[in-house]
């Protein structure tokens, strides 16, 4: 397998999922570093160079709200989902479940087809 091709396709696949994961995670307020840690704990490792600009972009699009606040004697920028973000997340999750369902149906159909095409006794 060409690993560069796999890496590119994996990156494309993860890119869309990452936005959904970030919006979902920010139903609870987080700042950049803790959000990254939270995603990593759930098995979604994200580069800081990707995550932090993404937060800014989502905020510009009105999907996140942010504010500077002091925590543990440090000023940090906390992000949380806006009303518009909540609505978009609902639609994105519906879309995600629909894609997941379709993909599972395609996979189970092709598995059945594969089993049917196998010679008897195998």
């Amino acid at each position: 397998m060409d690993s560069a091709t796999f890496d590119n396709l994996r990156l494309e696949l993860r890119r869309g999922c990452l936005v959904v994961a970030v919006l979902a995670a920010l139903r609870t307020e987080q700042y950049g570093y803790t959000l990254r840690k939270l995603l990593a704990e759930q098995g979604l490792n994200v580069d800081e160079g990707t995550l932090y600009p993404l937060l800014r972009r989502l905020e510009t699009q009105g999907l996140l709200l942010s504010e500077w606040r002091e925590e543990a004697k440090r000023n940090k920028r906390f992000y949380r989902l806006s009303d518009a973000g909540t609505e978009i997340l609902t639609h994105l999750l519906a879309e995600w479940r629909s894609i997941d369902g379709s993909l599972n149906a395609i996979l189970s159909e092709s598995d059945h087809g594969h089993a049917r095409s196998l010679p008897a006794g195998r």
């Binding site: 950049g32 570093y33 990254r36 800081e48 000023n75 940090k76």
Partner: peptide, 10 residues
């Protein structure tokens, strides 16, 4: 400022 805080925390 934000990057600085995130990196210091890390």
């Amino acid at each position: 400022r934000e990057l600085s805080e995130n990196l210091i925390a890390r």
